[in-house]
């Protein structure tokens, strides 16, 4: 057996293991913010990623487009049919919007939990080892991104901001949601039913909505939206659709399975959602 380590090196190895354990402990604490060296490293690597990533994405996008062309005819037929529905829906939405505006003016209520400022961002990288599904996007604290903000695609909610550096930020996808990062949501119905998105069922590829009272009325196909209670999420971001209702662990609550509207894996461009009501509150505080 040849010797891999001399005595000195063995000591060095042991010391490194101790430091490793300490560092892991340090990073496991739930941190509000990353330390500035970490932020700097992230931004620097983000820049390099953008440099190499853009050409790669262009090529991949082109191949995807060629693939899409094959299905164009069928999709086109389908879309034409949908377009007519859309026109009717749009007039209705416009009317409702105007009415809502008038009523709000009557009440003198300007800000709502629903209003938000969208921050457009592009995915520039992914965690390659995928023990935690995170993506890196090209907007950071300098663009107004803060920790815990909601991240959506046009289809619906996909995740939340885990950490924001100055020019990039890390987004934790809904498929990697853990117990410490629950999202307040409600099931839309005659009476809204409130609950918390608690996790992700990997087998069914569906979200778990928990903490719902056992006597609450929830039906299949109902829509689930963010509630805007707690945290910095605005109200009314679409999350998904109810697929199944099960009794909870102790029989006092129900668990609802929610199929997300958005594709949680295939994400290229995202919108980071900044709630306007927070900005207004901040301004008020600063004015004082």
């Amino acid at each position: 057996m040849p010797q891999f380590f001399g005595n000195k090196r063995l000591v060095f190895l042991l010391v490194s293991i101790v430091i490793l354990v300490m560092l892991i402990g340090f990073s496991l604490r739930s941190r509000e913010q990353l330390t500035w060296p970490e932020q700097f490293v992230k931004d620097a690597v983000g820049f390099v990623q953008l440099l190499f990533g853009k050409p790669a994405q262009l090529v991949a996008g082109f191949l995807e487009n060629v693939n899409d062309l094959r299905h164009t005819y069928e999709e086109n037929e389908l879309l034409k049919a949908r377009l007519e529905e859309y026109a009717a829906l749009e007039t209705e939405v416009e009317e409702l919007r105007q009415e809502n505006g008038r009523l709000r003016a009557l009440l003198d209520k300007k800000e709502s939990l629903r209003d938000f400022v969208p921050i457009q961002a592009t995915v520039i990288g992914r965690n390659p080892d995928r023990w935690r599904e995170t993506i890196i996007v090209n907007k950071g604290a300098q663009h107004g991104v803060k920790k815990d903000m909601a991240v959506i695609t046009p289809a619906g909610l996909v995740g939340k901001v885990q950490h924001a550096s100055q020019f990039t930020s890390t987004v934790q996808l809904l498929s990697a949601l853990d117990q410490n990062n629950r999202i307040s949501a409600y099931v839309q119905g005659k009476e809204n039913v409130f609950g918390l998105i608690e996790g992700y069922d990997e087998k069914r590829r569906e979200l778990l909505l928990g903490e719902i009272p056992i006597d609450a009325k929830v039906e299949k196909k109902q829509k689930v939206l963010t509630s805007g209670l707690g945290g910095v999420f605005p109200k009314g971001l679409p999350i998904g659709e109810v697929t199944e209702i099960k009794p909870g662990q102790y029989g006092l609550t129900k668990i609802v399975y929610v199929k997300p509207f958005a594709n949680l894996y295939d994400i290229d461009d995202v919108i980071i959602v900044k709630r306007t009501i927070d900005a207004a509150l901040q301004e008020e505080e600063e004015a004082k």
Binding site: L23, I24, S27, L34, V45, G125, N127
Partner: peptide
């Protein structure tokens, strides 16, 4: 560690 996993040292 810094950029992807946020688990320093591993």
């Amino acid at each position: 560690d810094c950029v992807y996993t946020e688990l320093l040292g591993v």
